[in-house]
Amino acid sequence: MDAVPDADVDITDALVRRLLASQHPDLAGLPLERADNGWDNVVYRLGDRLGVRLPRRGAAHRPLLNELRWLPFLAPRLPLPVPAAARRGRPAPGYPYHWAVVPWFEGRSAALARPGERDAYAAQLAGFLRALHVPAPGDAPRSPVRGVPLALRAESLAARLATGRLPQGDTLRAVFAEGTRAPLHRGPALWLHGDPHPHNMVVHPAAAGAPARLAAVVDFGDLTAGDPASDLAAAWLHFTARGRSVFRAALADGSGRPRHDDDAWLRARGWAVHLGAVMALLPADDPLHAVGRHALRQVVEECGSAVSGLG
C-alpha cells in the first residue's frame, strides 16, 4: 500500500538539459544534479542557488500550476522563504508539463532530525502557519483531500487500519472518530500549505548545542483553501508533547487569545491519525515512514484510554 506512483514520463538528466537549453539557455551550463525523485515531482539542483522542479505524472501538473500562480502572491506575506518560481518552463517535445526553476535552500530535511530536535522550531512553524492561515480568495485552489471535512477521509483510514500493520488500531479509530464528531470549521476558507510535514521543512544544520531552526518551507503542491485543522496536524507529525505545547501557545493572536478552538484541535488530531497512517505504511527507508510512526505514537501516548469511546 502507498507505493510511490509510477511516472508518466521518463525524466532524465539529458531531458532537463534540453529543456534548459531551449527555454533558459543562460542557465543551461550550470552544474545539474538529481536531488529527489518524489511522489509527484523530480527535483534537480542547478548550480549553487537554484533547483528545477518537474512533475513526473499528470496528477502533479495542476498542483504545480497552482504554485506558479499563487506562491509569488503569498511569499511576501510569509516569515520564511518558500519556493516561488524564479523562472517558468513550458511543455516541450518529450515533456508534456509545465515546470519551474526555483530557489535552492541550503539545509536538510526536518524529517531527518529527531523529534526532540524539531521541538526547537515549534514557535517558528506556528508563526509561519499563523501568517499563512488567512482568508483565501474565492478562486483559490481547492483540494479533495486537504482542508475538507475529516469524515471524507474515513474510508481511506479504515483501509489502512485493516492492514493490521498499525499498532493500537482501536485507539487510533477512536481518536479519528472523535475528530469527525467535532463541529465543522466555521468561517471563511483559509489558505493552507496542505502538507506541512517535516519532509517539507528545510532546517539549518545545527551546530553543536544549537537549536534547530527552519530555513524554508517547501513543496506547496497541496496548496489549498479550507479548514486549517489538516495543517494543524503538524503538531503531532513534528513534535513531542513539549513542542506541541509551545506550538499551540505560539498560534495565539496578538492579544494572546487562541486562534483555534478545542473543536479545531480535535479535528487536527484526527487528521494526525489519518496522515500518520498514510506515512507509517510507506517503505521503511522513506523518511516519512518514521514521521508517521512518530505521529501515531504521539497520539496514542497523549490520548490513551482518555479518548471518548475507548471506555
Rank of each mutant, 00 (worst) to 15 (best):
A113M: 11
E117F: 09
D119A: 06
D119P: 07
A120N: 06
A122L: 04
A122D: 03
A123Y: 07
A123F: 09
A123E: 11
A123K: 04
G127K: 00
G127Y: 02
F128L: 04
L129H: 09
R130D: 03
A131T: 00
L132F: 05
L132Y: 04
L132D: 00
H133W: 15
H133Q: 15
V134F: 00
P135W: 04
P135S: 00
P137Y: 03
D139P: 09
A140H: 05
A140V: 06
P141W: 00
P141R: 01
P141D: 02
P141C: 02
R142E: 09
R142T: 09
S143Q: 05
P144S: 04
V145K: 12
V145P: 05
R146F: 00
R146K: 14
R146C: 02
R146S: 05
G147Q: 02
G147W: 04
G147I: 01
G147Y: 00
V148A: 01
V148S: 01
P149G: 01
P149L: 04
L150H: 06
L150N: 07
R153N: 10
A154F: 07
A154Y: 09
A154E: 14
E155V: 13
E155H: 13
A158G: 03
A159C: 10
A159P: 03
R160C: 12
R160F: 13
R160V: 11
A162Q: 06
A162M: 06
T163M: 02
T163F: 00
G164C: 02
R165W: 09
R165L: 15
R165F: 05
L166W: 05
P167G: 04
D170M: 12
T171D: 13
L172D: 12
L172N: 13
A174G: 07
A174S: 09
V175A: 15
V175N: 09
V175L: 13
V175G: 10
F176S: 05
F176H: 10
A177K: 08
G179C: 08
G179A: 08
T180A: 11
T180V: 15
R181I: 02
L184C: 11
H185W: 15
H185T: 05
R186D: 07
R186S: 12
G187W: 03
A189K: 06
W191T: 09
L192D: 12
H193F: 14
H193K: 14
H193V: 11
P196V: 14
P196F: 10
P198I: 11
P198D: 11
M201D: 01
V202S: 12
V203S: 08
H204W: 14
P205K: 08
P205G: 08
P205N: 06
P205R: 11
A206K: 13
